[in-house]
Write a protein that binds this DNA or RNA. Sequence first.
DNA 1: GAGTCTAATCGTCATCTTGACGAGAAGTCA
DNA 2: TGACTTCTCGTCAAGATGACGATTAGACTC
Lengths: 227, 227
Amino acid sequence: MDFEPLGLATDLVILTVREGALQVLLIRRGIAPYKGRWALPGGFVRPDEDLEDSARRELAEETGLSSDRIHLEQVATYGAPHRDPRGRVVSVAYLALVPDLPAPVAGSDAASASWVAAAEVLDDPGRLAFDHHRILSDGVERARAKLEYSPLASAFCPPEFTISELRGVYEAVWGTPLDPRNFHRKVTKTPDFVEPVGATTTRDGGRPAQLFRRGSATILYPPMARG
Amino acid sequence: MDFEPLGLATDLVILTVREGALQVLLIRRGIAPYKGRWALPGGFVRPDEDLEDSARRELAEETGLSSDRIHLEQVATYGAPHRDPRGRVVSVAYLALVPDLPAPVAGSDAASASWVAAAEVLDDPGRLAFDHHRILSDGVERARAKLEYSPLASAFCPPEFTISELRGVYEAVWGTPLDPRNFHRKVTKTPDFVEPVGATTTRDGGRPAQLFRRGSATILYPPMARG
DNA sequence: GAGTCTAATCGTCATCTTGACGAGAAGTCA
DNA sequence: TGACTTCTCGTCAAGATGACGATTAGACTC
């Protein structure tokens, strides 16, 4: 087979919830093209590497999170002929949901990396290099949709969390306030969404809250109602 | 940039509902590898072609459906290093939903093409070439999910259809019988799901049924309940 | 150590949606 | 005319939702 010259890359939309807001990990590009501009982390797929392996490798390089317990899913593939000025590069975008990292972003090969509020980036279509604004937009929309019908919000939480911490995730991702009482009822009455740990915490202030961990459910039916 | 040798292809999961069953368009491969085996239609992306354009071109070649009103959406990308024995080929899979075609499959460059019941193919993981069983499986699952929360079932219908024809689509795709009365209530009470044409037909037998056409809704909330 | 503050948790209630199913309506066919 | 088929409208109980009142259990202040 003779193949056209073509590059294959993976780009990552790494999301977390910090300080009550949905944030995305961006890097500042150290080399041309778009040198000095913000972009999603990513890189070329190695010759004998599967797509998800490539995404997981990039994730580890940027965040130090090498665990296979991190939720990572393919979002879409972008292959417009001139999306990259270096030549034809097709990029497979992955979405990663990570808990609020205690440590800052680990040593990476990017010039610099930092968490930025997703809303802020989405509001400014010219902020990111390449077609990364579009990729981010699709990734965030995927995350929003996933919270509706899957118990994935807990991917943003530490292993043990309270109901209101979980609610904070929903509010940050959806950008909508939710009624604490109805949310509590919904979460605790949906079978296997969360399971009680048996301990309480006062880290959120106020009356001590029960701690829960992720349950075994994989889909939520009926789904959570987006505000 | 120096790029590794790499092929970029699009593969199509083209679904329709015929004779009360969900069917998929398959071709019999005329050349190696997997010569003589069934496979999803697809082909290499041209040097200056966007991914969706490539998928639409393949769709037109296989079905004669060149309209941009045909629903086509990207499902996922498959890039395991050795999924194609010819070398590294990354394939972007698209899902197309088409109405029951009055004409048989138009002249195509495939050795032969035909509609096959999706359930039958899904039951036999060795039937298809490459990793196409997996791609088909993902495509069908996407279609099933889409019917729940989008009004896309009408993409399988002619421009004007009856409620029970629409119900037939749901039953075929989900493989579940639905209560005609509750289905009728749900569809007609969901705003902008369908709009009445003002005429009736007796083509389904029994009492004449009102004809409807697709409404302007893009999402269904609450979603349709899968049996 | 009593009052204040905060957030968690439990309850109530009207409204909406669902699933199950009865029953009549409006055509075709013999 | 009667049998048959399918469409369409209704009813009813059960469950889910949204709005919101009330109580509880800690921490914090004075």
